[in-house]
């Protein structure tokens, strides 16, 4: 095994500088990077920890009531936090769906958002890959999952990404020019370089809205725990706005979470009858084209989108009615 250096800079500027070293990677919880190295998938030679940078391990609420969570806060810490659960039940649901208790103890908020994309033709152990001509993500010139594609189509498997997108969360990008971006703008659409971050940039924290919309989350996977998503769906509606703001996000179907905009438009006005919910689910399904790079068969994953969106919309619809009744 080649030698891997582990740097633990103490300031954001030093992180940015360290990221300029050859083969540099952010090391967050390590629950993805470490096994990727074990399987020789990741050959980065410099790991840059961010937990020593002030603020990255903090959870705080700003004057406007928005909660900011540092990138190096672990999923277990988020789930155990006395306030976050009450404010952001949808996000908690997604967090609980991630991996297993031991992994949630190590894995971090930033790591889950930025986690490397996965593909059944790449995320395989060493012997499996040894005879293959490399794909895009392995430094080659082809895609086994989508032979016609000119880009890598590995999937984003972050459970928090679709939920945070549906909630309208933002990410703090540190680097030469620190900035806040909408979460949707974090993902590039290229499975190989799946983040839009520029050289030296990294995610420092996320910020959640003061008044999160109502929402629902569905994770479709073969087992009740442990598995990565084969399809993720997050749906939210904010009825306080006029017209109401609807977000329907389908994830784990490509390198970037997909907004089903046509379905959203349908539900922004008018009544949420069961026919219109079904129509929205149809539109969401039509907007999504998973590649055959998950563990479950692609026809099933495509078809599941319909059911999951419908299911999630029904849950949100009844939550809206309930909330209206309370008000």
């Amino acid at each position: 095994m080649s030698s891997t250096a582990w740097l633990r800079p103490r300031t954001a500027a030093e992180v940015t500088m360290a990221l300029g070293l050859p083969g540099a990677r952010i090391l967050a919880g390590g629950t993805d990077l470490v096994p990727n190295r074990t399987w020789e998938l990741d050959t980065g030679t410099t790991w840059v920890g961010i937990g020593a940078v002030p603020g990255t391990r903090e959870v705080r609420c700003d004057a406007a009531g928005r909660w900011e969570v540092g990138a190096a806060v672990t999923l277990a810490e988020v789930l155990a936090h006395p306030q976050l659960g009450r404010h952001y039940p949808l996000w908690m649901e997604a967090m609980r769906a991630v991996a297993t208790p031991e992994i949630r103890t190590q894995a971090t908020v930033g790591g889950n958002l930025c986690v490397d994309t996965r593909c059944r033709f790449r995320n395989q152990p060493p012997i499996w890959r040894s005879g293959l001509i490399p794909c895009f993500k392995s430094g080659g010139d082809r895609c086994y999952a989508a032979p016609a594609s000119r880009l890598c189509v590995a999937m984003l498997v972050s459970d928090s990404a679709p939920v945070l997108m549906a909630m309208g969360a933002e990410a703090a990008v540190a680097g030469p020019f620190a900035r806040w971006i909408a979460l949707a703008d974090l993902y590039s659409g290229d499975g190989d370089r799946h983040l839009t971050l520029n050289p030296g940039e990294w995610v420092r924290a996320i910020r959640l809205p003061a008044k999160p919309p109502l929402g629902a989350f569905r994770k479709w996977r073969p087992r009740a725990t442990m598995d990565f998503p084969e399809v993720d769906v997050a749906v939210s509606v904010d009825c306080d706005e006029e017209p109401r703001v609807v977000r329907i996000v389908v994830s784990a179907v490509g390198p970037v979470p997909v907004r089903a905009t046509s379905a959203e438009t349908l539900l922004e006005s008018g009544p949420w009858t069961s026919e219109r919910l079904a129509e929205a689910a149809d539109r969401a399904r039509a907007a999504v084209h998973p590649y055959d790079n998950g563990q479950l068969r692609v026809w099933g994953r495509q078809r599941a989108v319909h059911g999951l969106v419908l299911d999630a919309l029904r849950q949100v619809a009844s939550a809206v009615v309930e909330k209206g009744a309370q008000a």
Partner: peptide, 27 residues
């Protein structure tokens, strides 16, 4: 399994269960 899929290597780090195959010596 050596990559965090099975749980057989769980140990405590400061009393919390962690998978030894995903835990770095430096940590």
């Amino acid at each position: 399994c050596e990559v965090g899929h099975c749980g057989a290597c769980a140990v405590w780090v400061d009393g919390l269960p962690q998978l030894a195959c995903l835990t770095l010596l430096g940590s």
